[in-house]
């Protein structure tokens, strides 16, 4: 098991793990509504499958929020 950080909170996961699988592991209801920053760099959506997360990595899951007017 490796320690990583997701949205500032520590997580233990089996690595290597792809960002796509990490999104699944975190029960993200709508993966198409999340933007991912890995160690301060945004990851292109097309590279979620091929990007591997490893020990010590820090990830931010940022969600689209519309809201507001209507």
């Amino acid at each position: 098991m490796s320690k990583i950080s997701v949205n500032g909170k520590a997580q233990e996961v089996e690595t290597p793990i792809s960002i796509t699988d990490l999104i699944k592991l975190n029960d993200v209801a709508q993966p198409e509504m999340v933007s991912i920053q890995l160690n301060g760099q945004f990851v292109n959506r097309e590279e979620f499958d091929s990007t591997q997360v490893s020990e010590g990595d820090e990830l931010d899951f940022l969600y689209f929020m519309g809201g507001g007017s209507i």
């Binding site: 198409e32 689209f64 519309g66």
Partner: peptide, 21 residues
């Protein structure tokens, strides 16, 4: 756009009445 590259697919956006605030 640096954070959110492009708009989410329209059918993925929770409808106003579903989501609530």
């Amino acid at each position: 756009r640096c954070l959110f590259h492009s708009p989410p697919p329209p059918n993925a956006v929770p409808t106003c009445s579903q989501a609530g605030v």
